[in-house]
């Protein structure tokens, strides 16, 4: 299963980015192969519709879950319709911490 995590930087020690649509990077973590991929979010500076673009990006990576701080009102129904589970995290956690949490479940 693949999981998307929004991140402020491109390393495992980077903190998660609390904004879904306007995050700096998407981390795609594969729980089967344990592989980690960092994808820069080109839509983060879009005037509008950054959330829509972000959903497209992670959906095309076939993720089942996405971890971020906040999901906007336009994004929630889209992710629901694609059956991608949203996980909201508050406070500062590193990408590695999130991966550990996912693995412990």
């Amino acid at each position: 299963m693949k999981i998307a995590i929004t991140s402020v930087g491109n390393s495992l020690s980077s903190n998660i980015d609390e904004r879904f649509g306007r995050c700096a990077f998407f981390v795609i973590y594969d729980t089967d192969t344990k592989s980690v991929e960092f994808i820069p979010n080109h839509a983060k500076d879009a005037e509008g519709g950054a959330g829509t673009a972000a959903v497209q990006l992670i959906a095309s990576q076939q993720v089942a879950k996405v971890v971020s701080g906040q999901f906007g009102v336009k994004v929630k129904p889209l992710l629901d319709s694609l059956k991608i589970q949203m996980i909201s995290i508050k406070g500062s956690h590193s990408v590695q911490e999130i991966i550990n949490m996912v693995e412990e479940r």
């Binding site: 903190n15 609390e18 904004r19 306007r22 879009a46 005037e47 509008g48 500062s92």
Partner: peptide
């Protein structure tokens, strides 16, 4: 004023708060 600058102000504020 599309709200994008408001978003930028808030995300900067979040970073500073942390």
């Amino acid at each position: 004023n599309s709200g994008k600058l408001v978003n930028e102000v808030r995300s900067k504020a979040n970073i500073i708060a942390t």
